[in-house]
Amino acid sequence: MNIQQLFDLSGKVALVTGAGRGLGRAVATGLAEFGAEVAAIDLTADNSRDTVAAVTAAGRTGRAYGCDVANEDAVQQTVAQIAADFGRIDILINIAGITARIPTTEMPPATVRRLTEVNYYGTFWMCQEVGKIMLAQRGGAIVNMSALGGGFVGTGRGNAAYSATKGAIASLTKELACEWGGQGIRVNAVAPCWFQTEMNATSIFSNKNFMAQVITKLPMKRIGQPRELIGPVVFLASEAASMITGLILPVDGGAAATCPIEWKPE
């Protein structure tokens, strides 16, 4: 195989959830830059307007779909619609997610439920529905979104309910890798540390003590930029990773290998 073709996604159809902003928008754009057609899911189709524009600017077909991934009926209908519109689904990137940085003793049950429903169930429903299509195609690549807090350097993250959903996603990823490995479907996850997105804007980036630790203790001395997730996700979604499945890939400037950073509210 030609070396450029290893990472080339031309002719592939990629479904990205949480594509409206943040990491989802960066990844959806990156996939298009590497040649993929993109079905962008977010809570409303309108959320993904800029994403679709970026996909189109990269010369690829992009379509936006409104779907709450926590709702299995909505997932079923939307995935069926995407399969009808694009004819197939080769790549699934589950990025839709929410966080709630509240001390555990003060955490309202409804918030715990919603976190679990969006992050974990949302990933599960998407894998289930798209998995059926990939099994029928006898091939596909799934990249889920875990997080460094999902059991990698697990302590002191100040985000217990969220971290538990990301650990569940890591576990699901490994199980599905085994269940579907023989049928040509690879299932991996990325585990980012702290990236510059709106999700973190109001919580950790305004916490001076936390940011000081990031800058002093994190080996690379900086947080990540959304575009720095493109390389890892394109790699895992492409032929270049043909022998990789069940992997949880930290994209963390070295944090998992080295340093404990503690989060305390200020």
């Binding site: 990472f7 080996p219 690379m220 930029q225 390389g231 070295g254």
Partner: peptide
């Protein structure tokens, strides 16, 4: 593929893995 990923700019925020 994995080597090109780790040897190139695609992995600039991946370290110690």
């Amino acid at each position: 593929g994995p080597l090109l990923f780790l040897a190139s700019d695609a992995s600039n925020y991946v370290d110690g893995h």
